[in-house]
């Protein structure tokens, strides 16, 4: 009898609880998406489907002293076979004049999905990696880079 009493929650309390949960969960994500051109671009590329946040090796410096030459490396964990491989990888930046940095097209014969290049970052910002596999699924990750001297010649 005692247990039953404890579990009983009134309808009003339940509604308040739900409102509390959803309120805290949804609000920050909305304000984040509106101000972020990289996430908008990801939405465009994936045609609204969105990407699964996953554990991808994305190597970026934590602090870039010179925003003109920021090395970016990545390696996708993929068997790279005809039936299961990464097709495309995008690098996007949310604080540059344009979010697009580079688009890489891979083929299964490469045996590995890994590349390195150097990019410009105009200020401290998040860099995103978006990858599409041959089944049309999208994966993503991001990393923050602190930039001491910006590199877009603004």
């Amino acid at each position: 009898m005692k247990l039953k009493k404890l579990r009983r929650i009134s309808r009003r309390n339940a509604l308040q609880l739900i409102a509390g949960f959803t309120g805290t969960a949804i609000l920050p994500s909305i304000s984040f998406a509106q101000s972020n051109q990289a996430l908008n671009r990801i939405n465009e590329i994936t045609e609204g489907i969105g990407a699964i946040e996953s554990d991808i090796y994305l190597d970026l410096p934590e602090i870039a002293e010179n925003g003109n030459q920021v090395k970016v490396s990545f390696e996708m964990d993929s068997p790279m076979t005809e039936s299961d491989h990464i097709k495309t990888v995008y690098i996007l930046a949310d604080g540059n004049p344009s979010p697009n940095v580079a688009k890489f097209s891979f083929t299964p014969v490469m045996g590995s999905c890994s590349a390195t290049t150097k990019m410009r970052l105009s200020k401290t910002q998040n860099v995103y990696l978006l990858a599409e596999n041959n089944n049309g699924q999208f994966l993503m990750t991001n990393a923050k880079v602190k930039v001491t001297i910006g590199g877009c010649g603004g």
């Binding site: 697009n100 940095v101 590349a115 290049t117 150097k118």
Partner: peptide, 26 residues
Amino acid sequence: FNGKEIFQMNLEPSISTNPYISFQYK
């Protein structure tokens, strides 16, 4: 490689002066 395209990359203005690109091949 031997006439068959294995890798392609589109570069945007955010790529640095004197572009460096490296990739792997089996």
